[in-house]
Design a protein around this nucleic acid. Structure first.
Lengths: 335, 335
DNA sequence: GTGAAAGCGCTAACAT
DNA sequence: ATGTTAGCGCTTTCAC
C-alpha cells in the first residue's frame, strides 16, 4: 500500500541498506546516491514506517503521561507544558487519564510494559498505590524509565520525584488566615499531608481543631458545590475555608453565593493550584500557586535524561518546588 | 531484557508458533499445552511486545486526536468522551495539540502517516486548511481513516464530518437577544459562519450592523479580558455581547465587572459551548450548549467503524448535532 | 494439534 | 561507498 524503503531502493537501483543510510543522512553515503535516493523518496511521498523502526530501535519516540483527568485544568496545564518540552526532542505524548480509577492506572502500566512508550510520567494518586508502585518499579527495571509527580516512592534512584511540599503549603495557607484574624477555619479535600499541615498550623496557634469543619468530596466544581450545600446546614459557618483545589473553591463559592452568603465579606475561601481561571473568577481567587508548568517541564527533562541513559545528580532525584500564596479577592482580614 | 515469546516457548517445550497461538486463545491448541503456556507466561510475567505486534498486524490499537489545545475545556471534555468511547474497544488515545499552529498540524499528519495510529480525529481549524486537507486525504487513501469534527471538507465519503450548524447557532443567540429587547448587540470571535449567522439575525430584524461592535481575539479568558478592555473605551457600550466561547465570555465579564459595569444589569453577555464551568461562574453564563461529549462519542464510533472497514450509511457521513440555548444569569431582558 | 518458515519494514554489523 | 545478512518479536500460512 504505502511506499516502503524497498520501493525506493529498487527505483534508485541501490540496496535497501544504502537507501536507509541515505535517508538517515549518514555521511558514509556518496553525495550523488544521497541526492538520488532523497529525490525518489520525495517523489514517492515516502514516510518511514514508525512501527518497523520502533521494533528494531526498541524505541517509539513516545512518552506516556498518566493523570487523573484531562478536564482538570491543573493537569491540562501540566500536560501542555510536558508536551511542549518533549516536542523539542522529537517525542510525542500519549495522554492517559485514569478517571481516578485504580484499574485504569493498572491498564496503563501494562500498556507501557508492552513497549508502547519510551518512558512515562505518573501524576496520579489513588488506591492500590503500593501494589502499583511495585509494578511500576518492574517497568523501570524492564527499561522504561518513569518519573513521579506529586507521588511518593521510597526509592528516588529508581524513580525520581517532582513535587511540592503538601504539608507546608497547607500549613502556610492556614497560617496566613490565622495571621489575618481567622480562628474558625475549615478544610475541604482528601489529602493526608495537606490536612496535617492545616491541623499543625491551627495547633501551633492554639486553635482547637474542629472535625466538623473538615469535609471531603470530589476535586471538582460539583464536589465543591456539594460541600457548600453541607456548609449551609452548619449551625455556624467558619470564617474561612481552605479548599484542596481551585475548582472546589469555585464550587463552594458558587454554592454559598447562591444562598446570599458573601465571599469574602461573610467568609473567606482559599483555593490551591492557581489555575488559569482563578484570576478571572468572581471574586478572583486567593490561592496557593503551584508551579505546574515548571514541574511538568522539569519532569519531562528528567525523564528524557533517563531515556537517554544520562546519570542524574542526586539533587535531580527529588525535586521540591516552592509554592506561593497569591492573595486576591476571595479572602479578607477580619478582626 | 524483557521476556519474549521465545523464552516462553523454550520453557514450555513448544514452538514459538504454538506459544503464540495459545496466548491468543486459539481453539486449535491442545488444552494441556494451552494451560502450560499460560502458566509459564504468568510466571515469567510476560507482556507481548506491542511494537512487534504492531508491525505484523499493521495496527497499533491507538488513535490520534488533534485539537488546538488541551487547556481549552471544550476540547478537554470532548477528548475525555472520545477516550472513554474507544477504550471499550481496547484502543488508546494519543492526544495531539497544535497550539493553533499550522506547522504542528502538519507534524501530526506526517506522524500519522508513519503508521503511529490506526485512525485519527481532527478537531482543528486554522490556516492552510486546503493544503492540509489534501494531505489528510492522502493519509486516508493510505489506509488511515480520519473523522473531522467541526471541520469541513468536500468529500464526506472519504472523511465523515461531525459538526453543529455554526451559522444557525449564532443566528439563534442573536435572535434570542433581539426578542428580548436588545438592539445593540456585539460579537466577539473569529468565525466566518458564526459572524454571518449573527449578522443575518440582525438584518432579518432590520437592525443595522455596526462593525465597531465586532471584535477578534484569542479564544481564551485572557483574549476575552482584552476585548473587554477595548469595549470600555467605546463611546457607548452595546447592551449585549455574544462571545465565540465561554472562556472569552468570562474574560469579558471579568474585565467589565472590574470597571464596575454590572452583568447582566448593564450588559448581557452570552457565551458558546456550555463548558462545565459556565454553570458555576458568577454570574452563571447564558450560553449555547454544544453537545461535545455526544459529538466526541459519535466521532469515535464512526472512526472505529472505519477502522474496522465497516461501510457507513450516508447519514453517518455528515452528522449535524443540534444545539440549545441555556439561559442563565449573565443575560437579561431589556425594554 | 504442532512446528517450520516466511515475512512485517526497518536498522546495523560486517564484508566487499 | 555500497551490498549482504541477520535480526527486532511477533503472527500466520502451510506442511506434517
Amino acid at each position: 500500500m504505502s511506499t516502503t524503503l524497498k520501493d525506493i531502493a529498487e527505483k534508485a537501483n541501490v540496496s535497501i541498506a544504502t537507501a536507509s543510510l541515505a535517508l538517515n543522512n549518514s555521511e558514509k553515503v556518496n553525495h550523488k546516491t544521497y541526492e538520488k535516493v532523497k529525490k525518489i523518496a520525495e517523489e514517492l511521498n515516502y514516510t518511514p514506517n514508525a512501527r518497523a523502526r520502533a521494533l528494531v530501535k526498541k524505541a517509539t519516540e513516545t512518552i506516556g503521561l498518566v493523570i487523573p483527568e484531562v478536564e482538570n485544568p491543573f493537569f491540562a496545564e501540566m500536560a501542555q507544558s510536558i508536551k511542549n518540552t518533549i516536542k523539542e526532542s522529537g517525542y510525542n505524548l500519549i495522554l492517559c487519564s485514569t478517571e481516578y480509577k485504580s484499574e485504569e492506572e493498572l491498564r496503563y502500566i501494562n500498556l507501557f510494559k508492552s513497549g508502547l512508550v519510551d518512558g512515562a510520567i505518573f501524576a496520579c494518586l489513588g488506591d492500590m498505590m503500593e501494589e502499583h508502585n511495585k509494578m511500576i518499579i518492574d517497568l523501570v527495571k524492564n527499561n522504561t524509565p518513569v518519573v513521579f509527580v506529586d507521588r511518593e516512592i521510597n526509592n528516588y534512584t529508581l524513580i525520581p520525584v517532582i513535587k511540592t511540599d503538601l504539608f507546608e503549603g497547607a500549613y502556610n495557607i492556614a497560617n496566613y488566615l490565622i495571621n489575618n484574624g481567622h480562628k474558625k477555619i475549615g478544610f475541604i479535600g482528601q489529602s493526608e499531608e495537606r490536612v496535617e499541615g492545616y491541623k499543625k498550623a491551627l495547633s501551633d496557634n492554639n486553635i482547637k481543631i474542629n472535625d466538623n469543619y473538615i469535609f471531603y468530596n470530589f476535586l471538582t466544581i460539583e464536589g465543591g458545590y456539594k460541600v457548600g450545600q453541607k456548609l449551609l446546614k452548619l449551625a455556624k459557618l467558619p470564617t474561612a475555608i481552605i479548599c484542596l483545589n481551585d475548582e472546589m473553591a469555585m464550587g463552594v463559592i458558587q454554592s454559598l453565593t447562591s444562598a446570599n452568603i458573601k465571599v469574602p465579606e461573610d467568609i473567606s475561601i482559599i483555593g490551591i493550584d492557581n489555575i488559569r481561571m482563578s484570576e478571572y473568577y468572581n471574586p478572583s481567587l486567593t490561592t496557593l500557586h503551584i508551579p505546574k508548568k515548571e514541574m511538568g517541564k522539569k519532569a519531562a527533562e528528567i525523564l528524557l535524561k533517563r531515556i537517554n541513559r544520562e546519570k542524574l545528580s542526586s539533587d535531580e532525584q527529588l525535586i521540591i518546588f516552592p509554592t506561593e500564596l497569591i492573595v486576591r479577592k476571595s479572602s479578607r482580614t477580619i478582626n
